[in-house]
Design a binder for these strands. Structure first.
Lengths: 252, 252
DNA sequence: TGCGCACGAATTGCATGCACTTTGATGCGC
DNA sequence: GCGCATCAAAGTGCATGCAATTCGTGCGCA
């Protein structure tokens, strides 16, 4: 009942967290596509800090699953597998059911206004550029999570929402989030009404349908991991020796 | 269905992850109590690495919520509030329901043996020292999570299980996990039988009762944050001036 | 033309150094 | 004896430097 102070999630120093926020945003707005390289030097230079700090930021983002870090290799924006995406949505549904259960009937007037304002912003952005509307849709869920005042819930929901958002840029059809806004409005209405069961099932089906629209096929449209895509062909060609890829393709 | 490779969760270089593992274990075995100081120098010296690496490890653990990092201050083992603990268990219950739902009826013979072996180990440790049996109980849940082969689930369940374990060392009565072993056995049995609903409710009530045993009162038994514990007394004494603590107590 | 190899550039892994902040202890005034 | 200012010791924040590894490109060879 008593409101607790919202504690900052790790993110020690400001410089590091600034970089993290910037990169997170760039990633979910698809300015940085999955697989994009993130060299420490460039990041440091871009943000006016040393490699040490950039490195630390990359470490944090890797812990969140947005960045992939392999020893002695340039960090890249994560490229989750289709199965990862499914798992992420499964977990996400449970977490967000928890969120709305806690929130049902307990929203303050200010919070309701905040939510409405956010959905209005989503509405306005609908005609605008894709990346922004995707980000806003994601941030709606994060906003809800913040209202629980539960640091753990906030952290996990934010993290997983970002990751789901990232997978959208991999697997989703060109555009598929138009109707989400109405579903957001419906959730707000149910939250105000205070029916726990109703709002939980609304959130559940909302996320289900987002996942459904997004994860239409287990095959990525965008030509990310070429080697994996070509794997079946290589197997089919077996009987000869292993198919060797020309360097131009292997590289990137 | 197809088994996926278990991906390492961030934890870039080996040196860092070794330190993380060591500290995690020390923390959940209560060799390091909540509030214990973790100076970068000492860690580095102890593990034969530079401050840079120790620092990075602390960053990771802070991201997991096991360590608290405040600017310009020595890192300390996290001291979750009672409310944090409640929230953690709420989330944990949902996540672990998901785990056992995915696992119900799908365990391989090897996995069953592995689980039985683990519970046997718990049994053997029962008479032994407390910290080890607590760790084993926690690791049972982590072992289950691993069997889902879902990196996200593995990461979140591990993380939150460690955190819950940490709170146990703060709030739990001297010893309270005796009967957990039988509950673990029951869960294994239900998993083998394959009844999703049954195993989910078993896990739910198991964690509920662990939480219930642990979080008996919103007041910590152990004398952590002295100032907070004394706050009510100070208030009661109001009318005079603010009660000032002698230095010996204030310090640590 | 296509493939392999080797070398230079780019990049990471890690330690160390310096500046700044916090800590806590000592000594002084009351 | 108690409180407070002052100062050294300890610790963190961050950048930089060097070694090791990877990446990419051009050359030689089939």
């Amino acid at each position: 009942m008593a409101p607790r102070a919202a504690s900052k999630t790790a993110e020690s120093s400001d410089k590091v967290s600034v970089i993290c926020r910037a990169l997170r945003r760039a990633i979910i707005e698809q300015a940085l596509e999955p697989g994009a390289k993130l060299p420490e030097d460039s990041l440091g230079e871009r943000f006016g800090v040393s490699r040490t700090i950039a490195r630390h930021a990359l470490g944090q983002l890797a812990a969140e699953g947005l960045v992939e870090l392999r020893r002695n290799r340039i960090a890249v924006v994560a490229t989750p597998s289709w199965q990862d995406a499914r798992d992420a949505f499964d977990v996400r549904i449970q977490l967000e059911r928890l969120v709305v259960r806690q929130l049902a009937g307990k929203l303050t007037k200010v919070q309701i206004e905040e939510l409405n304002a956010h959905v209005d912003a989503e509405d306005r952005a609908r005609g605008g550029s894709d990346p922004v509307s995707i980000r806003l849709a994601t941030e709606f869920h994060i906003l809800l999570a913040h209202m629980t005042n539960s640091p753990i819930l906030i952290r996990y929901v934010s993290e997983i929402a970002y990751r789901c958002c990232l997978t959208l840029s991999l697997f989703s059809r060109p555009h598929s989030s138009e109707c989400a806004i109405n579903e957001h409005r419906a959730i707000i209405a149910a939250l105000i009404k205070g029916d726990e069961e109703k709002v939980m099932s609304l959130m559940h089906s909302h996320l289900d349908s987002v996942a459904g629209r997004a994860l239409v096929s287990p095959v990525p449209q965008r030509g990310r991991d070429l080697l994996d895509i070509l794997a079946p062909y290589a197997e089919a060609a077996e009987g000869g020796r292993v198919v060797k890829l020309p360097k131009a393709v292997r590289g990137r």
